[in-house]
């Protein structure tokens, strides 16, 4: 293909938004012909930005593979994080604490509300309960699955009432 008339092509392009019909072919010619490059750039200096494409092609196949591998790893991590986040989102924040409160209220209502005048002491689940507490616990609601890591049971007993507060961040109610 002979070199296009860049001056008239660029002038036509500047006059109206529609590109001249021969413009795409002229661009292909511009990318491969060094004879008329100077003339083309003189007619339209913004053609210099075609070099942006040429510069970007410098990525070697090895670099390309490395970039793709990095993306695969990152996307995999994002997908894993997304999967882990989804269930906790359904049972997060206020829901977890309100569930704990509901459990506590349920335990309280079984014996009726009684004012508390001493601090709450956490009791490790693995420790055996004293005989008196075991007797009281026999009448209290039973809770399953409390051997889960991270779960804690706070309980206090009196002659008139018994309260067990269960805190389990992983519980799904």
């Amino acid at each position: 293909m002979s070199c296009p008339d860049w001056k008239s092509l660029a002038a036509e392009r500047d006059r109206r938004p529609e590109e001249p019909a021969s413009w795409p072919l002229a661009l292909t010619h511009f990318d491969s012909c060094t004879d008329c490059r100077r003339e083309a750039l003189a007619a339209d200096p913004t053609l210099v930005f075609r070099r942006l494409k040429a510069g970007a092609d410098e990525m070697t196949p090895a670099q390309e593979r490395s970039e793709a591998d990095a993306v695969r790893l990152a996307v995999s991590a994002m997908r894993t994080a997304s999967r882990l986040e989804t269930p906790s989102r359904s049972f997060s924040g206020w829901r977890r604490w309100s569930s704990a409160a509901v459990l506590a209220l349920a335990a309280l209502s079984a014996r009726g509300p009684v004012p508390v005048d001493h601090p709450i002491a956490p009791i490790a689940l693995a420790e055996p309960l004293p005989a008196a507490q075991r007797q009281a616990a026999a009448d209290a609601p039973t809770v399953e699955g409390m051997d889960r890591p991270g779960a804690r049971v706070y309980s206090w007993d009196d002659k008139d009432y018994s309260v067990h507060l269960i805190v389990d961040p992983n519980a799904d109610v």
Partner: peptide, 11 residues
């Protein structure tokens, strides 16, 4: 798809 499109998208 990642292998094919990573380079053009990064560019």
């Amino acid at each position: 798809l990642i292998g094919r499109k990573t380079k053009p998208l990064i560019q």
